[in-house]
């Protein structure tokens, strides 16, 4: 396990020097702030943009603070998840393709340390970035729309973090198993498209990792069904562990695919 810290140091340096450590959290922060702001000022913005026929009346529903936080999450679910999947799909595959991985693989490293060093960096950037973004969103929501129940908020945040761990595991596994191009596609399909499918057909089942963002919202609103939620969390955590272990397995198996 001692190799882990050296590998992590390398991952950290890489993500500092390619600015991922900065720009990905900033994207989450940006959407976290802009969501409550635009929702609050939308009527005024539309009015000032003008060109509306005289006498047009906009009906804006009264938005609750919980709805604003959920609308932040739905931004993360689209743009945020695209950033995570496409931004990290090459985290292992690209090293193999360029040949830089060869000089790591000839050393007595453990492939689980190797994968875990990448996992920890992704967790730090993605989950760290989302926490910062949602806290900022909470602050703005609090000013503009009012307070939310703090216990419910932490339940909501924790549930969403479990979902993010699942996303990270999918991306890491894909990158270990496939080339960067295929890993991007697989990640986008299993993170973004699977959500749509789950939303369309998902009335038939209640236990699914892809339902976690929805459950997070329900927790925030204070009305949720405990049993399917707990099962979904369990399934998600187990799936994540399996995917991470699978990433280690495939990272080792694909050593021979590294360019020599």
């Amino acid at each position: 396990m001692s190799n882990f810290s050296f590998l992590f140091q390398k991952e950290w340096r890489e993500n500092v020097r390619n600015f991922k450590i900065l720009w990905i959290p900033l994207v989450f922060l940006l959407f976290g702030i802009s969501e409550p702001l635009t929702n609050y000022y939308l009527p005024q913005i539309l009015a000032s943009v003008g060109n509306m026929p005289e006498g047009t009346v906009f009906q804006f529903p009264e938005l609750s603070p919980e709805q604003i936080l959920m609308s932040t999450i739905s931004q993360y679910q689209l743009i945020g998840m695209l950033v995570v999947t496409l931004g990290f799909a090459g985290i292992i595959a690209r090293e193999r393709k360029s040949g830089t991985a060869t000089l790591l693989y000839v050393r007595p490293i453990s492939y689980f340390s190797y994968v875990n060093s990448k996992l920890l960096v992704m967790i730090t950037i993605v989950i760290g970035g989302v926490i910062v973004g949602i806290l900022a969103s909470l602050y703005y929501t609090n000013i503009l729309f009012g307070a939310v129940d703090i216990g419910a908020f932490f339940g909501f945040l924790g549930t969403y973090i479990a979902w993010l761990l699942f996303v990270i595991s999918i991306v890491l596994f894909s990158s270990a198993a496939f080339t960067t191009g295929i890993a991007s596609t697989v990640s986008v399909v299993f993170v973004l498209f699977a959500q749509i499918i789950d939303a369309l057909l998902g009335t038939y089942w209640t236990i699914s990792p892809w339902k976690l963002p929805m459950y997070a919202g329900q927790i925030l609103n204070g009305n949720f069904d405990m049993t399917p939620f707990v099962w979904s969390i369990m399934i998600t955590l187990i799936a994540s562990i399996v995917l991470i272990a699978g990433a280690g397995y495939f990272a080792k198996r694909n050593v021979s695919k590294a360019k020599i």
Partner: peptide, 29 residues
């Protein structure tokens, strides 16, 4: 919406973050 009524204190962070993103991207470029 006239100029004074714009809540600059609330919007300022967004402008700053956008600027940082642009500057970082340009430096990287």
């Amino acid at each position: 919406m006239d100029f004074e009524s714009i809540p600059w204190l609330l919007i300022l962070p967004i402008i700053i973050i956008q600027l940082i993103l642009i500057v970082v991207a340009i430096i990287d470029l």
